Computed example of a mutant assay.
Amino acid sequence: MKHGESTTDADPRIDDWRAFAPLDLHPILVAALEQFREHGYHGTTVREVASRAEVSLPMIYYRFENKQGLLVALLDRAMSEVLQRARLADTEAEGRVLERFANVIECIVLHMTYRAATAGLDSELRYLEPANRRKYAALRKELEELLLQIIEEGVAEGLFEVDRAPDTSRALLGMCQAVTGWYHAEGPLTPEEIADRYVAISLRTVGARVRPAPRGDRR
């Protein structure tokens, strides 16, 4: 973004990592998100976004430079939010590895459901220019490293049993990311129910020898 940013462009302040208020985006980004979801990045034009947002083309170029800028703004917002939530979820466990792991997985899956629209744009990152792709990859790496650290600590404490922690971390994140491909708000399961199931699957994946307290008791 270039000039005149409004408060809706900024990363949200998050106090409760399990609580998701409606997504607050600038109207131009709302229009871009809808276009990208319906037609893909490649099939969307800036003119279509401007028409949908009911703004002029110069306004979009002034704020976001080009179509790439729209995608970058949405991807940065999504990744910044899940990182912020994941760090809060990790901190809440107060160093208890099993709870740290369960909290972070729960947090990621909640993000993939409540924020499916923006989180699902991860599939469009192939269209990012090299510099933008490196920046986004660095943010994703932070999330991967957080989960990896927890898994390695679980192995060191004899709580987890995995052959290759880095591969396991990437596999778990890929599994969670895939939720955006099938989740529908009108489906039979709530985000919380899906998160509970994915925590159970993830604990089995890392060979957890014991289970953390039920989610309600971890609050």
Rank of each mutant, 00 (worst) to 15 (best):
M175H: 08
L71N: 04
V82G: 05
G69K: 02
V155L: 13
A10Y: 08
A213F: 01
I60G: 07
L74G: 07
Y114I: 07
S56L: 02
I28N: 05
E142W: 02
I14R: 03
G181F: 09
K135L: 12
I150H: 04
L74I: 01
K141H: 10
T180D: 07
S80N: 10
A156C: 03
L121M: 07
A31E: 08
L83D: 11
T8G: 02
P188H: 01
P212D: 06
D196P: 02
E65V: 15
P188S: 01
A137Y: 02
R170H: 14
H26M: 01
S80Y: 04
E99S: 04
P12C: 08
T190G: 05
H39P: 07
V55G: 07
A102W: 00
A178I: 02
T91A: 08
L70R: 07
P27N: 04
H184Y: 11
S51D: 15
R209H: 12
L146W: 11
R126I: 11
D16G: 05
G187Q: 00
S51T: 15
A93D: 05
G40E: 05
A200P: 04
S169K: 00
I150E: 11
F36N: 01
Q84G: 12
E94P: 04
L98N: 09
E38K: 09
G216M: 15
D196K: 06
A31P: 10
P22F: 10
E186L: 09
R77D: 11
L189T: 08
D11L: 15
A156G: 08
F101K: 02
A119W: 13
G4K: 11
P27V: 02
Y136D: 10
G69Q: 03
A200N: 14
A102T: 10
P130R: 06
H26T: 09
D76Q: 13
P188C: 00
M112S: 15
R37Y: 13
E65T: 14
A165E: 15
A213V: 08
